[in-house]
């Protein structure tokens, strides 16, 4: 595997795409060596691929905890710094604390889910990538790399599986 070449195979529909994935598996490509690019979210199972791993939920949970800590600081830490009496109400009110803590927890959860999505996907990145605008027209593309010596074998297999085109992928500005 000294020299590898990256191909972009375009498919019209799920059926041939899943067949293509199967062929690539048969040719000895592991799931890590290929990626599916599509215009709509496709569950990995439909194409016979493992489900992608995401850390967004975990990051969001961390965010929720941080948000909660911040909320608790706001409602119980701030009055400690400068206690002021209002309307005979307690300095560290529990009912009001629930409201602020809730809001801040949710803000932390969602803010970190948003940031987590960026971090986990590597957004924003404006570097050249293997892509073709046809993908956002609904085509399904399989991006895979194979040894340069075997490239004909792979191209033939995918064309047989129903790929519209199998072309060497070039990184381009999106």
């Amino acid at each position: 595997m000294s020299e590898t070449i990256t191909f972009l195979a375009m498919f019209e529909d799920f059926e041939p795409a899943s067949l293509g994935v199967e062929k690539l598996h048969d040719l000895g490509l592991s799931d890590d060596d290929m990626n599916v690019i599509s215009g709509i979210p496709i569950k990995g199972a439909i194409l016979g691929r493992p489900s992608a791993i995401t850390y967004v939920s975990r990051i969001a949970m961390v965010g929720a905890l941080l948000g909660m800590a911040f909320g608790l600081f706001l409602i119980y830490g701030i009055p400690y710094l400068y206690p002021l009496l209002v309307g005979g109400q307690p300095i560290f009110p529990i009912p009001q604390g629930i409201i602020i803590t809730f809001e801040m927890t949710m803000l932390g959860l969602m803010g970190f889910a948003f940031i987590g999505m960026f971090v986990d996907s590597g957004f924003p990145s404006y570097t050249p990538k293997e892509y073709t605008p046809e993908i956002s027209d609904g085509k399904i593309a399989i991006l895979f790399s194979c040894p340069e010596s075997d490239q004909k074998k792979f191209v033939d297999a995918l064309t047989k599986a129903g790929a519209e085109s199998v072309v060497p992928a070039e990184a381009r500005h999106l």
Partner: peptide, 25 residues
């Protein structure tokens, strides 16, 4: 567009985040 292509990982992250938002909001 943030350089979005539509790879499996990107979609997974996006739909997970959207699900979280839908429930949390």
């Amino acid at each position: 567009g943030l350089g979005f292509r539509g790879t499996e990982g990107e979609w997974k992250n996006l739909t997970t985040a959207m699900n979280l938002f839908a429930f949390a909001i």
